[in-house]
Design a binder for these strands. Structure first.
Lengths: 141, 141
DNA sequence: TATTGTTATACTCTATAACTATA
DNA sequence: TATAGTTATAGAGTATAACAATA
């Protein structure tokens, strides 16, 4: 039986997770900034690539207040990246979706992010990268 | 000879790194927010635990403009967590250091962070956590 | 002249509270 | 009454530009 003992966390693992995370997030921010986007805008675009949420749903996805998302969408809409489209039945609500411009941006961003994150893994062998990916995926499950 | 081929990054590894990082950073933010601190304030306190930098050095550590750090230190000083102390030789510069209150905060924060991050690793066995830590440390080196 | 740090200004992000329109 | 979204307001965080003091 495998050992999955309780709540203790090896300080070395904690430090490694924290350092890795700061490094990854910094690279994401860098990719976003290259397109004059904030990290939040980047997350929003990633969500809208696969969903057309209502404002309240988007707020939940992002972990933000609805009022914060209003401004977020305002600014992104002013830049022509997203749009509010009528929701049909409920006259109070809208759906948010990417414009053609917004949709065009997504793959470029993904490619840039990959290029910025790839160097982080350069000191690992292919086999080690495979193992790392497996462990992280199992951890997130 | 181990294979460390070029710039390609497995999308699965990239996603796993990104998701893990968002999860870790969210937990760090949560620990910080529990003490009315931002993520930046948390990073600043972590740096000051081991250094007494000048303003410009602190700005470099944090990757921020000096003007941004001025406000950061102002707010932290108003809360009694940090202080500006004369640098001795150079009349233009100061050193920033933790106050007694600030120093008291650090271990509490570390413990809370560990408690928030530990559950993330719960689905891995002890051996897997060990391997994950090793891989991350090698990656960061 | 160059450097250190601050200040003035402007913008994004965020939350709380109050509001409008619809249900 | 309750819900969806916006607006008003306030504060943190950030950068650029201009500044004072020191080197």
């Amino acid at each position: 039986m495998p050992t999955r003992s309780g709540s203790e966390l090896d300080p070395k693992l904690m430090d490694a997770l924290v350092q890795t995370s700061f490094s990854v997030i910094a690279r994401l921010s860098q990719a976003a900034a290259a397109h004059d986007l904030s990290l939040t805008q980047l997350r929003m675009l990633a969500i809208l690539r696969d969903h057309q949420p209502k404002m309240a749903e988007l707020a939940t996805y992002l972990g933000l207040d609805r009022s914060s998302v209003s401004g977020l969408i305002d600014r992104a809409a002013k830049r022509g990246l997203v749009q509010r489209t009528s929701s049909g039945d409920d006259g109070r609500s809208f759906r948010v979706s990417l414009t053609a411009d917004g949709r065009r941006l997504a793959p470029a961003l993904t490619a840039e992010i990959a290029e910025l994150i790839a160097p982080l893994t350069r000191s690992l062998t292919i086999a080690e990268r495979q193992r790392l990916g497996d462990l992280l995926i199992r951890m997130l499950r």
